[in-house]
């Protein structure tokens, strides 16, 4: 038996989704971009970054985890929510050591692209310059924890897709970091460069060796078009 479509609105525009979908899934299909950092299609949503916060019937909810219901009123593109998103991105920049000028991920980085999209020229909070480290022990992959935004994509991908449980979070609060399931180093785990976990990092924290700077400046993912343009272009078709 076919289930009935669910109708709701985002910023006053009527959207149709199917039962069981989250706001994010229905919005993506309809060509409405809700900004996100930790959410990635095909991975179990983690709901940790809070960039995708939208107002649902007047209350804030994470669009990546909240299921759609009939007649729900969602606000996404508002000044208040953009300000909230800007604050989170500002905090992510000052809590890490994000040196875009020499980062291999620059131009293809989702955090950087989100800051561009939100028009951030400088974060409003004081820089923390935390102590962090790099694990380059693996022959094909390296972890630079300076750049990690604790989105959890690698944890989920390694657990659910690769079935390897290579990554996990350890510590709490400012001590929280990504750890590997081995005595000490990434090279002691069974991660492979073809694993999903090695492809999903939104920033330059988990990168493949010997492929950096392959695409020239001006032709990278977010050089000309803001992040989310691919989803928004669906709507115009």
């Amino acid at each position: 038996m076919e289930q009935k479509a669910i109708t709701f609105t985002i910023d006053g525009v009527e959207i149709k989704g199917s039962p069981g979908q989250t706001i994010m899934q229905a919005a993506d299909e309809a060509g409405v971009y809700i900004p996100r950092l930790c959410y990635l299609k095909d991975l179990t949503p983690h709901g940790s970054c809070r960039i995708c916060t939208v107002m649902v019937n007047g209350r804030s909810q994470a669009a990546c985890t909240q299921p759609i219901t009939e007649g729900m009123v969602v606000e996404n593109n508002t000044d208040a929510l953009d300000e909230h998103r800007r604050n989170i991105v500002d905090m992510l920049f000052v809590e890490g050591n994000h040196y875009c000028m020499f980062c291999e991920k620059s131009g293809n980085c989702e955090l950087q692209a989100m800051a561009y999209r939100l028009g951030i020229c400088a974060p409003k909070y004081p820089y923390l310059f935390p102590q962090s480290n790099v694990d380059a022990s693996h022959p094909d992959i390296l972890i630079d924890r300076n750049r990690c935004i604790l989105c959890g994509r690698c944890v989920i991908a390694s657990r659910d897709v690769d079935g390897k449980n290579v990554f996990e979070f350890v510590g709490r609060g400012p001590e929280k970091r990504i750890a590997v399931n081995a005595e000490a180093k990434l090279s002691d785990t069974d991660i492979d460069v073809t694993d999903k976990a090695a492809q999903v990092c939104p920033v330059g924290a988990i990168i493949k060796k010997r492929v950096g700077f392959a695409v020239p400046i001006g032709e990278r993912l977010y050089d000309k078009e803001p992040i989310g343009s691919d989803i928004e272009s669906k709507k115009n078709k």
Partner: peptide, 11 residues
């Protein structure tokens, strides 16, 4: 804006 390369000495 953020200290840049010289700020790599900050830790």
């Amino acid at each position: 804006i953020n200290g840049g390369i010289p700020a790599m000495r900050n830790d």
